[in-house]
Design a protein around this nucleic acid. Structure first.
Length: 276
DNA sequence: ATATCTGCCTGCTCGC
DNA sequence: TGCGAGCAGGCAGATA
């Protein structure tokens, strides 16, 4: 389940491999993977374009083309993206959904077992990213900005952190990790957080994401860097996937509950239900 | 408007 | 060993 740190890691790897490469054609093996435009327009617009940059916004991967268009890819749950040389046996793997032929004979391959991932080719990225919330690692993302987005929201803070329109890039893993680091119970209504708690949460979000990027992300279960080194952040997880294990701060057993249909992990002692 | 629920998907784990 | 049930989850779209 690639979240912001995993997408950032993949973008950094692809940047080295893709910039300056020219797209020749695309083969879409699972039509629903292509969100927009239709296959004919997609091929016509992409053919002959050269990648000039690879970036990220939230959990979206952005490949800027010299035509001015942007190839946008969301990996969702099980999506993987890799450049492969001609003749690589992985080109024929079961779950390959889109294969991009490059001018030098290599391929950019999008593989996605669960078929949740999506690909767009757009003139204007706002068409896809328009409503996305602020980039949490951007210097312009402040605690005050976060607070403004939580005020008047009665939903559980965990649910709000998963809402990409409030902050972009957090998924189930880093939402749990940030709440633990900040010492905030996942069921607390967003509007109930004090000024100080919002400050702690803002700092925790940035800290957790930055630390994970430094470790090349958390690669577990469905998401392992398929064709590169594994991320090491997995061994640093404080609460996610650790029910019953001792809290790294106070040794109280980690509890697991469901919040907003998502499995949620927290320390009942470090993250009290009623705040301080 | 916000909050909650469902569908999309397949592979893995668990219990019998 | 085999098999079905349940679970995992990001996000769009529907509903209350």
């Amino acid at each position: 389940m690639p979240e912001l740190p995993e997408v950032e890691t993949i973008a950094a790897d692809l940047r080295k491999q893709l910039i300056g490469r020219r797209f020749v054609a695309a083969t879409v093996l699972w039509p629903r993977t292509l969100a927009a435009p239709d296959i004919a327009s997609f091929n016509a617009q992409l053919a002959g374009c050269t990648a000039i940059d690879v970036g990220r916004r939230g959990k979206y991967l952005l490949i800027a083309l010299d035509s001015g268009d942007t190839l946008i890819i969301h990996l969702r749950m099980t999506g993987r993206l890799a450049v492969m040389a001609e003749g690589d046996p992985r080109l024929e793997e079961n779950h390959v959904r889109v294969r991009f032929a490059l001018a030098d004979g290599s391929f950019l391959v999008f593989t996605d077992a669960r078929k949740f991932g999506r690909v767009w080719l757009v003139h204007d990225v706002a068409q896809v990213l328009g409503k996305l919330g602020p980039e949490p690692l951007d210097g312009r993302f402040t605690a005050q900005q976060l607070g403004e987005r939580l005020v008047a929201r009665r939903a559980a803070i965990k649910a709000l952190l998963l809402d990409q329109n409030i902050v972009a890039g957090l998924g189930n893993i880093y939402a749990d990790e940030a709440l633990h680091l900040a010492g905030i119970h996942p069921l607390r209504p967003g509007a109930s957080l004090t000024f100080e708690e919002v400050g702690r949460l803002h700092a925790a979000i940035r800290s957790v994401l930055a630390d994970s990027i430094a470790q090349r992300g958390t690669m577990l279960r469905d998401y392992r860097t398929p064709y590169g080194p594994d991320g090491a952040y997995k061994s640093r997880l404080r609460v996610y996937g650790q029910p019953g294990r001792p809290c790294p701060r106070c040794a109280t057993p980690i509890e697991r509950i469901r919040v907003a249909q998502r499995s949620t992990h927290f320390c009942p002692r470090c993250q009290p239900a009623t705040g301080d």
